[in-house]
């Protein structure tokens, strides 16, 4: 397999963390992986993206240009991601913040009201995990059990945080399954 995944949104939306979970889970599954963040002058609320390349072979380019799967957490990232998507790829759109619809017909799209679903769980900051659940259900680049194992490892000290992240992940999975 060879997947190139892009995650983009506002700073503070947990974009880099979603990428990190994808990368760690791929490593756990014994694959080659590159996690590459955008980086700029330190500024809260600016646009942030990261890409994760997952492959069975040694990975070349650190950057991706044609994502096979992607998450657009805010309107600006949808504008960038839609034209870049590889034909047949999966694009997860955070409907809570992105009002517009995707016009391309050669890609699969999952609209998920990530922040609203997160608020229902009692913490609107876990919208990122909702979108991750929606992504890996529509395009199984890693298994949810691997993501859960990574979270158990990364967040052992904050049980409350860990639990709500897990619930957000499964809420996202269920959303894609139900649509």
């Amino acid at each position: 397999m060879h997947e190139e995944i892009a995650v983009a949104g506002f700073g503070g939306q947990g974009v880099l963390f979603v990428g990190r979970l994808l990368a760690e889970a791929s490593l756990l599954e014994g694959r080659e992986v590159v996690w590459m963040p955008s980086y700029g002058a330190e500024k809260r609320g600016g646009t942030v993206w990261c890409n994760v390349t997952i492959s069975d072979e040694k990975i070349g380019d650190l950057f991706i240009t044609r994502p096979t799967a992607a998450i657009a957490m805010n309107p600006a990232s949808l504008v960038k991601l839609e034209p870049a998507m590889k034909s047949g790829g999966l694009l997860v759109v955070n409907q809570s913040l992105v009002p517009s619809k995707v016009s391309r017909e050669d890609i699969r799209v999952v609209y998920v009201p990530a922040n609203d679903l997160a608020t229902e769980l009692g913490d609107d900051s876990v919208g990122n995990l909702v979108t991750l659940g929606a992504l890996v259900t529509g395009c199984p680049v890693v298994s949810t059990s691997s993501i859960i194992a990574v979270m158990d490892n990364l967040l052992p000290k904050n049980q409350r945080r860990l639990e709500i992240n897990k619930r957000a992940l499964s809420k996202g999975c269920a959303w894609t399954q139900g649509n």
């Binding site: 990190r20 490593l27 992986v33 996690w35 590459m36 963040p37 980086y39 990975i59 650190l62």
Partner: peptide
């Protein structure tokens, strides 16, 4: 270079 500095790999 900066790209390699920021990239994460196993």
């Amino acid at each position: 270079d900066g790209f390699l500095g920021q990239a994460m790999e196993p």
